[in-house]
């Protein structure tokens, strides 16, 4: 992340005290090769790294936008506040629950659905097309449909359906806010996982499966011994990409629960949004942003390693 800027920037030209003509042209050659890369690289550095450095600076200041001129340097006191903030800890926990819950459930469902779709049957491509649609629907639109037509306590379809089997209506977004948010997210992300795993299944060599069948391997054994190891790369990719996006979940929370009731479904992006744009507390919000980045680096490093280890033990 930000720490990589130093290493990932344009490689410094080797310091050659006296340049023989050959080295000169090699250097020029190097720059000519690099030239097409530079606009994209420089743009990305300016657009992502500089704001982050400014965030670090803001996080060391006390600054409320409502009081112009209130800005002054306070050192690490914003960080002390962040770590003693009960809501911040809850938001961190909610972020983990939402991300972990959504990614794992969506992946499990996605694997199941991909296996079902990877057979020849009537309307295969129609079902696949229907299945991927939730991922294409604008997330704000999807969340609004869940909040109104699906989960509304009085007129929602979900309560109507559970009413048919005699269950009393449930006020989903206030009684089970996290479940509601994760449900809407799983609905959106299962198609993504299905697509990735399905691509994995379809790239599988038929001959290996047939050979195993001839050797008398049952479907369960074949799945565990051949298909699952082959899918490993695809599952890892899905979990990683899914997690990167779901950690940043904002739309669904903004629409379904507004982080509530209280702070029951507030995740870190939503909490920082509240502090910055409703509380106008720039210093605090910036400090939280920095903590989230550090947390993401730590979690990403460990989670990736654990994931890779688990998978290599199984195979």
């Amino acid at each position: 992340m930000s720490a990589d800027t130093a290493t990932a920037g344009p490689p410094p030209a080797p310091a050659v005290p006296k340049k023989p003509p050959a080295a000169m042209s090699a250097r020029r050659q190097g720059w000519r090769r690099r030239a097409p890369l530079m606009p994209a690289l420089i743009f990305t550095i300016i657009a992502t790294q500089i704001p982050f450095l400014v965030t670090v600076w803001y996080s060391l200041n006390s600054w409320n936008l409502v009081n112009p001129g209130s800005e002054h340097f306070v050192g690490l006191s914003n960080y002390v506040d962040v770590f003693t903030d009960r809501v911040f800890r809850q938001a961190a926990l909610n972020t983990v629950v939402i991300t972990g819950g959504c990614v794992l459930i969506a992946m499990a469902l996605g694997i199941g659905m991909a296996l079902l779709l990877d057979r020849k049957f009537l309307g295969q491509s129609v079902v696949r097309t229907l299945m991927i649609t939730p991922f294409l629907v604008m997330p704000v639109a999807g969340a609004l449909i869940w909040q109104t037509s699906m989960l509304d306590p009085a007129f929602g379809i979900v309560n109507y359906v559970i009413g048919l089997v005699g269950i009393d209506p449930v006020n989903w977004t206030s009684s089970y806010p996290l479940v509601s948010v994760i449900g809407a997210l799983v609905w959106q992300w299962t198609p993504f996982m299905t697509l990735l795993v399905l691509a994995g299944l379809q790239s599988q060599g038929r001959d290996v499966l047939e050979a195993a069948q001839v050797d008398g391997a049952g479907p369960t054994r074949m799945f565990r011994a051949i298909t699952l190891p082959h899918l490993r790369r695809y599952i890892e990719l899905g979990v990683l990409l899914g997690a990167i996006y779901v950690v940043n979940t904002f739309d669904q929370i903004y629409i379904l629960t507004q982080g509530g009731p209280g702070t029951a479904s507030t995740n870190l992006p939503f909490y920082i949004y509240q502090r910055a744009f409703l509380g106008f507390d720039i210093g605090q919000a910036a400090a939280m942003g920095v903590v989230v980045v550090i947390g993401t680096i730590v979690v990403a490093t460990f989670a990736l390693r654990m994931l890779f280890r688990t998978f290599s033990e199984e195979t």
């Binding site: 990305t44 965030t55 920082i272 919000a285």
Partner: peptide
């Protein structure tokens, strides 16, 4: 840069 949470840069 895709792993950098957006909330970390929204304030500046």
């Amino acid at each position: 840069t895709k792993m950098l949470p957006v909330v970390a840069v929204i304030v500046p």
